[in-house]
Design a binder for these strands. Structure first.
Lengths: 348, 348
DNA sequence: TTGAAAGCGCTACCAG
DNA sequence: CTGGTAGCGCTTTCAA
């Protein structure tokens, strides 16, 4: 930049202004600077130096609570990421992927990332990373919770939505079983009767389980008899396995499933074992993916794209507040009551 | 860092060494530095200052020739990205996503990104970005070509693989039609008889078309009569539409399709219109996705995960050369010759 | 509208 | 093994 200034016969400040606040510089100066820059092959301010001096990076970090491989394969994560990418486009901001595998140096790596703020996808209550992020002083929005002082938060009311979708399935049935997402980043796949939600560190899993229980309690179903199977991966094959296991108990007439992927696997299991949907078994999912719609799956709809976009825009300072996230229950064939009125919560 | 040095009673250089080359510093000094750092809440060298001084960023840029939304939705892109992410994990390197929408300032944004090198996914012959990347002096690897002086390159031999898969389908048929990926970043969906490959600026599309033509010529099929439909999106619905259009000509007995997604759409179209596979129509795909395998689709297998990993490792300086990429033709029901010997090229 | 001075926090280089 | 010096390229601050 000093060279350009010398060549253009102006001060370095005029060159800096030409690139950063062109309106502050006379047209003549601007032209001379651009001419000199073109002549010298100067392509604009060095970003590292700019970052050092100004403390800004023009980039946003996305913290994924798993290997990136999983994030790219998970349809929900993808839609959320797409929304973030969309916001970045508007702001000419780079997107830095920060996988969090809970290894020793992961928190330090994330803290030291050259980003202006963070969006966090999938984390646990009491994850020490949350305090680390607060410590950076950078704006941070956590999808799906947990609520954490100093951090912004975006999610639908999972508990209310779980209650609603369970109620839709259970109005003419009484023997639900639950296929849950993983309860924390370590635990193995297990079946638990009357699962205790306060034991679960993934906030999304916890809230949905609470909502299912709310519905059971209200409908007079004894929660202590309701089995919950915690899965480890959000994949169709896993849902198939889970359903086969739970359906060994012939009394089970309803599967409340925490994702569409898993629920589609449950439908696979039903088809393979000749169990009729919805006469003998009702199934509900979560997220309203296109495949779920095609399969006639009753499910909770939420726009993860909008949540990604909204959280990123807030982090980038493009909006004052994080938009509220809405949801609805899409009633379809898999619960046999597709003509019941649609249920909505929040703003969709 | 100066404060830490003062507090520990050593020079700033000893602090710097403690973090960057601990082995060069005595254990006693190291301990004093760490103690002082802990006391002052110092968490290690500022990354922006380090980047400015050392010129290194500890991150790699991935240039996607489309909106990130598409990249996250496209199964092939996802597998390639997963491979890159895997390499980053080994090297404790951040992954920066750089969409290239061919807008005015995209090249500058990509050039100015704070990364140590680039991996490029999906670009066009003569894309001016390629020269920009050469100009950065940073190591760059382009997946799928084009060959460009100064840039590394990774891909399978698409032309040979296309020839092989077309030959597998055409040994007992004589009337192919082609469903092609988009020819460049602008063109609309069109049907062209005897398509001229030299007209196409996406190198992958070009090479595969050349390979299909090679097979036709060798088998005595008049290329000028072979229709090619260029699609705009790599999506199942698009393949369905394309197949319906091409199958309006009742003589067509083979669809050579440049992706599994599109080929699955073609199978959908055949099923919906009552065309029997493979007796009345043969279909081939590309990439050997799990869904394709399940659907009995004859296809070209290649590991995009390995290509992503290998190209990223080279960019990061973790390997001397980019590994050769291999392919094979997986013969299945959709071409009716599933017992023919498997064909391989390169190292898989 | 332009400019001079100062220094962001660090590491390359060289010297001891 | 340790330290001094210099300066990476820029922008903030203040002054003209």
């Amino acid at each position: 930049m000093a060279d350009v200034a010398a060549s253009a016969g102006v001060s370095t400040m005029s060159v800096s202004y030409t690139y950063n606040q062109p309106s502050r510089v006379s047209a003549a100066t601007r032209d001379r600077v651009h001419a000199a820059a073109a002549h010298l092959g100067y392509t604009g301010p060095n970003r590292a130096a700019r970052s050092l001096r100004s403390g800004k990076h023009n980039s946003i970090g996305v913290v994924l609570g798993e290997k990136l491989t999983y994030a790219f394969e998970d349809p929900q994560a993808r839609r959320f990421l797409s929304g973030i990418a969309d916001a970045c486009l508007d702001a000419d901001t780079a997107l830095v992927m920060l996988p969090n595998l809970h290894r020793d140096n992961d928190n330090a790596r994330i803290r030291d990332a050259q980003v202006d703020g963070y969006v966090v996808w999938t984390t646990e209550i009491d994850d020490p990373l949350l305090d680390v992020l607060v410590g950076t002083g950078r704006p941070t929005c956590v999808q799906g919770g947990p609520h954490h002082p100093g951090l912004e938060w975006i999610a639908i009311d999972d508990r209310a939505a779980a209650d609603a979708v369970a109620t839709a399935a259970l109005t003419s049935r009484a023997h639900p079983a639950i296929v849950a997402l993983r309860p924390d980043s370590r635990r193995e796949s297990t079946v638990v009767p009357g699962a205790d939600a306060s034991d679960i560190s993934m906030p999304v899993t916890r809230a949905r389980l609470e909502g299912y229980r709310d519905a059971c309690v209200r409908l007079g179903i004894d929660w202590s008899t309701v089995p919950t199977l915690f899965t480890t991966h959000n994949a169709r094959g896993e849902g198939d396995r889970a359903a086969r296991l739970l359906l060994q108990d012939a009394v089970v007439d309803t599967l409340l499933v925490m994702s569409d992927e898993l629920a589609l696997g449950a439908l696979d299991a039903a088809a393979a074992t000749g169990i009729e949907i919805p006469t003998r078994l009702a199934v509900t999912g979560w997220d309203d993916s296109p495949v779920a719609a095609a399969a006639g799956l009753t499910t909770v709809a939420q726009s993860l794209f909008d949540q990604g976009r909204s959280s990123a825009r807030w982090v980038l300072g493009l909006s004052e507040t994080v938009d509220a996230a809405g949801w609805s229950v899409e009633k379809r064939r898999s619960t046999g009551r597709e003509n019941d009125p649609r249920i909505e919560g929040g703003v969709l």
